[in-house]
Amino acid sequence: MIVADPKPFQQIRGFLEDYRKILVLGCGTCVTVCLAGGEAQAELLASGLRISFSKDGKEATVLEDTVQRQCDEEFVLPVLERVKREGIDAVVTLACGVGVNFLSDRIGAIPVFPGVNTTFYGGNVEPGLWSEMCAGCGDCITHLTGGICPIARCSKHLLNGPCGGSEKGMCEVDPQNTECVWQLIYERMKLLGRLHEMQNLIPTKDWRPAMDGGVRRSVREHIFRLQYKSGAGA
């Protein structure tokens, strides 16, 4: 899932100087799970903003809401309607960057500000700790590496590692917390009885499906632009 961290409060506060009616919008999916932007966090931020505004003598209303996902039209429509109906003049979303974009594309002349820093695709390795595991490169090569991603988990994104900075299984970039992924790949290949494959070089990766080929889209033809839904079939 997508992992995010709360933005520094004062940065968010700084976005809002010119606004009078602000909606803090939580998201019920990834950012709820990583404890960065669910309903409880939205309440907390909204409360913090109200306190800060009143301390500074700034008159503004702060509202709060949370939707299941901010990356689906059906879930965000009611929010868009509310924004219009209630004359909200700025939105702070606690969704990942997708939510910020998704809302901005639809909301008209109302600014949408990010309340979190979207950081990575990761897993919850232990309670309270998330770790990056995938880089979304568009051309997965983990079949070559025992299911462990060197692009996301090697500090240098090496395709053929380890480098000289691998020491006692740890990565020189952060020897306290980060394991050398190539050590992990080595152990894993050994466990799988595929150690010999590591003698082959992994060929240069095709980076076009990553950020290089322009904005990426995914289409599922079987439900994409159904004619009867658009009225064209009638």
Binding site: G28, C30, T32, V33, L35, E39, N124, P127
Partner: peptide, 12 residues
Amino acid sequence: GAQCAGCLTCVR
């Protein structure tokens, strides 16, 4: 009506 995401925090 809660947006329970099954985050497991309660379990933990």
